[in-house]
């Protein structure tokens, strides 16, 4: 069962790599014309194609690219001819740092608040939280980010509005510099995660075996901890994984707002410069993170399901 899911994850990753390669290489208007844009003459196009190796069959190039990628070799950037891998490495670290920073704070916060809201279902806390989180998930990340900048940074100067870290920035400064981007991400994913946690706990709490536990005279804490939580665990895990996957998208925009030198920024730049090798590499990394998270969630859900753990 778990092995099956693992194999499916690998297959999906493979399919995604095909899609990324195919999407950028086979679509009409190939790489060469994309680079040359309006300056393309038939001669320069042909020369460029040769230089890029586009005259060889796509399947060969895909195989080379994939085996290179597996070894951490993503080829050379078209914009500055540097090795893509070297370009990516420090930025990937930055992005992972920011994402982890946000996740470490958001996950316990969201699960805790979600449980609280579920226990007080229909109460004042629950209703207020429902409206507030609904608003938070509706608004774009940059709106929250600029609000934070305007009030916490510009007006009162609590935190810096630019997250211009360098590889040598010490960890504490790094945490201060990335404080506002972190808060923005936390706000967005906490709201999502909290709502979904609340919903999954509520659906468990509505099941007849919880009513039965109540009719057995068990105290509320025991019903929640012993009877509801183990059954809500699987849905909560998948909620968390789903939202961490969502972080990937959030990160791109938040990095742009705070001019944070992460992978998202790099990818956005590469897209506007049509720097395909960089776009491919970033896309593959984002897709891999997304697929791994989803796979991890499914595997954990399988492991926590009593029906699957104890077969008939």
């Amino acid at each position: 069962m778990i092995a099956q899911r693992f194999a499916l994850g690998l297959m999906t990753l493979f399919a995604a790599s095909l899609l990324i390669f195919g999407g950028t290489e086979i679509l009409p208007g190939d790489l060469a014309s994309a680079i040359l844009q309006n300056n393309a003459t038939p001669e320069s196009l042909a020369a460029m194609r040769k230089e890029l190796g586009l005259d060889r069959p796509a399947a060969t190039r895909y195989a080379e690219w994939l085996s290179g990628a597996a070894h951490g070799d993503f080829g050379h950037s078209l914009a500055n001819k540097r090795e893509v891998a070297n370009e990516i490495a420090p930025r990937l670290k930055n992005t992972i740092f920011l994402a982890l920073y946000a996740a470490v704070i958001a996950v316990p916060l969201a699960v805790g608040l979600g449980l609280l809201a579920a226990i007080n279902q229909g109460g004042v806390f629950d209703r207020v939280v429902n409206v507030v989180t609904l608003m938070t998930i509706s608004v774009p990340e940059y709106f929250l980010a600029y609000l934070l900048i305007k009030y916490l940074s510009v007006q009162f100067g609590f935190f810096p509005s630019l997250a211009n870290v360098t590889p040598n920035t010490p960890i504490l400064d790094r945490m201060t510099l990335t404080f506002l981007p972190m808060v923005t991400l936390v706000l967005v994913i906490t709201a999502h995660m909290m709502r979904m946690t609340r919903a999954s706990v509520l659906s468990v709490m509505a099941s007849p075996y919880i009513e039965m536990a109540l009719l057995k005279g068990l105290p509320k804490w025991r019903i929640v901890v012993r009877h509801a939580f183990p059954n809500a665990l699987a849905p909560i895990i998948s909620v968390v994984a789903l939202n961490l996957a969502y972080l990937i998208v959030g990160v791109v925009i938040v990095e742009a707002v705070f001019v944070y030198p992460g992978l998202g920024q790099l990818m956005v730049d590469a897209v506007s410069k049509h720097d395909v090798p960089v776009v491919q590499a970033c896309g593959l990394i984002f897709a891999a993170a997304f697929i791994l998270l989803n796979m991890g969630a499914d595997i954990l859900a399988i492991m926590t399901n009593p029906r699957l753990r104890h077969a008939r």
Partner: peptide
């Protein structure tokens, strides 16, 4: 559909826009 949804939508949009403008 499974294939198209195997990666985040924003990232997928980036891939297409980088080639097609």
């Amino acid at each position: 559909v499974d294939l198209l949804l195997s990666m985040p939508v924003l990232i997928f949009a980036f891939m297409i826009l980088s080639v097609l403008g």
